[in-house]
Amino acid sequence: MEIEDFFKIYQKSAWDKDASAMIDLYDEHALIFDMWDQGYVSNPSEWRKIITDWLGTLGEEKVKVEFEMVKIHQSGNVGFASALIQFQAISGDGTVLRSMRNRISLGFSKIEDGWKVIHQHTSAPISSDGLTALLEI
């Protein structure tokens, strides 16, 4: 896998609710700084559970993921990418039920079968009142 493939595979695996394909993008020792609940995950089985629960509880809904402003830098066996990521919950009839846009930064390491995410950080800016995450950037 090349770094740019991450974005296509993540997008497709979210739409297809394919937790295994999404989890396979990550190194088994990846550190994930997430916006939800505890804020970070460093245990591979915990990350697997989070992804499986997220995609497995969607019912008839689908998740449309779009990336914007993708920037990739790589040298040797180390790579970095950043982007805006938009999630849309789509009903069975194609209606957008809810959406949010976050920022994502990714660190990659090149291993035998390609690049794997070793670090991920998602965030949203906070309003100037300091109390509200701005989920539409």
Results as ranks from 00 to 15, higher is better:
residue 29 H to I: 04
residue 23 I to L: 15
residue 58 L to Y: 00
residue 89 A to M: 09
residue 66 E to Y: 01
residue 53 D to V: 04
residue 42 S to P: 00
residue 121 H to K: 08
residue 10 Y to G: 05
residue 41 V to A: 02
residue 55 L to Y: 00
residue 11 Q to M: 08
residue 127 S to N: 12
residue 134 L to Q: 13
residue 71 K to C: 08
residue 127 S to G: 09
residue 115 W to P: 05
residue 19 A to C: 01
residue 59 G to C: 01
residue 1 M to G: 06
residue 84 L to S: 14
residue 11 Q to V: 03
residue 89 A to L: 14
residue 63 V to K: 00
residue 6 F to V: 08
residue 67 F to E: 12
residue 10 Y to E: 10
residue 115 W to V: 13
residue 131 L to A: 10
residue 43 N to K: 07
residue 92 G to N: 06
residue 59 G to D: 01
residue 7 F to Q: 06
residue 91 S to D: 04
residue 81 A to M: 10
residue 127 S to Y: 01
residue 65 V to F: 01
residue 76 G to P: 08
residue 116 K to N: 13
residue 36 W to F: 04
residue 129 D to F: 09
residue 127 S to F: 01
residue 112 E to C: 08
residue 70 V to I: 13
residue 47 W to Q: 02
residue 63 V to G: 00
residue 49 K to S: 02
residue 1 M to H: 06
residue 22 M to F: 15
residue 77 N to W: 02
residue 118 I to M: 04
residue 21 A to G: 13
residue 137 I to E: 13
residue 14 A to T: 03
residue 70 V to Q: 03
residue 38 Q to D: 03
residue 68 E to L: 06
residue 49 K to F: 03
residue 27 D to N: 13
residue 15 W to C: 04
residue 12 K to E: 15
residue 93 D to Q: 07
residue 75 S to A: 13
residue 58 L to G: 00
residue 1 M to V: 05
residue 42 S to R: 06
residue 61 E to N: 00
residue 119 H to V: 11
residue 61 E to C: 01
residue 42 S to F: 02
residue 21 A to N: 08
residue 39 G to C: 12
residue 4 E to P: 07
residue 46 E to T: 07
residue 17 K to C: 01
residue 134 L to R: 12
residue 101 R to P: 01
residue 118 I to S: 01
residue 108 F to M: 12
residue 79 G to V: 15
residue 11 Q to W: 07
residue 24 D to I: 11
residue 27 D to P: 05
residue 97 L to Y: 03
residue 77 N to G: 09
residue 102 N to L: 15
residue 16 D to E: 15
residue 66 E to S: 07
residue 108 F to H: 13
residue 114 G to V: 05
residue 118 I to R: 01
residue 133 A to Q: 12
residue 5 D to Y: 15
residue 4 E to R: 15
residue 85 I to R: 09
residue 13 S to A: 13
residue 91 S to H: 04
residue 7 F to L: 03
residue 7 F to D: 08
residue 66 E to Q: 11
residue 67 F to M: 09
residue 48 R to V: 06
residue 120 Q to Y: 03
residue 65 V to G: 03
residue 3 I to P: 12
residue 13 S to Q: 12
residue 50 I to V: 12
